[in-house]
Design a protein around this nucleic acid. Structure first.
Ligand code: FES
Ligand code: FES
Lengths: 144, 144
DNA sequence: AAAATAAAAGACAAAAATATCTTTTATAGA
DNA sequence: TCTATAAAAGATATTTTTGTCTTTTATTTT
């Protein structure tokens, strides 16, 4: 469904939301441990998300990653689009170069339904909301 | 959603269903052209599907690939499982090692709904049915 | 100002997915 | 039986994804 990169990105965003909700910042090592991802790899991913303004960061002592109030409202759709592009939102399920009602692949009718559900789900799910459930220990970001 | 391999596999199966509906067989070159895939690559994929009994084939002159009556009833789920494994049917959307109601990731509740829809769609969609629409030129396997 | 810290940037490495080519085997037809 | 045909099998190559390491830059603290 999502690339590994994207899975890590979403998990990291939720983790950062949690750890920075009191205004503090969280370092890359803690993030990597918290979401069980390769440290250098998630660093690269967050670097890119930082460039796109999806996550905030600060260098130096007491520095780290955090989410400002607007970033907490980021939808999963925004993250997925930033990392995986928009194939999942508009691409053909059978890999035709273009998905189109006028020139549909054999799966088009069934697939567009699913794709619509996915899009709507990703659009309405926000990082901040997921973080709250995590806080209540109702959900988890890693399996020990 | 699906790997490239899997997309080619599904397209090829539908194409073969169409070309072999009168009992004849279709060669790898014609398949590759018909679904716009790399020739040697789809050959490998069909070889593997052949080993698993999902597609039938015959060597030598007048040989080629075809689908017997039982193979026409193959669901997309069977093809996807044979090629991509069962991650899409049971894997965690955020990449946790295990998806579980007891230890859910933050996306679990939303994701399992989608996954259920996908599974059900793939289970009830059969190669033979898709081939019929293709035959009526209502759908297409490539974009020119 | 100097030292320590932590992310950014850039280079590199390994693994997996995708794609191609060559040789072998089975089958049909002359 | 010989030849031509087409898939199977095996080897190799390329590209993309995933993962790692090193150097640089910004910031804080001493
Ligand atoms: S054309 Fe394939 S999903 Fe629309
Ligand atoms: S645990 Fe992630 S989808 Fe179920």
């Amino acid at each position: 469904m999502f690339s590994k990169t994207c899975e890590y990105a979403i998990r990291a965003m939720i983790f950062i939301a949690q750890k920075s909700k009191d205004g503090s910042k969280v370092g890359i090592k803690e993030i990597a441990k918290g979401i069980d991802s390769p440290e250098y790899f998630i660093a690269k991913i967050l670097q890119e998300l930082g460039r796109k303004g999806v996550v905030q960061s600060m260098k130096g002592p007491t520095g780290g990653f955090y989410l400002d109030n607007s970033a907490r409202k980021t939808s999963l759709a925004t993250i997925v689009k930033a990392v995986d592009g928009d194939n999942i939102f508009s691409g053909c399920g059978l890999g035709l170069k273009q998905c189109s009602d006028k020139h549909p692949c054999p799966l088009h009718h069934e697939f567009t339904k699913i794709r619509k559900d996915i899009t709507s789900m990703l659009n309405k799910t926000r990082v901040g909301d997921l973080q709250e459930e995590l806080d209540q220990k109702l959900t988890f970001l890693r399996r020990d």
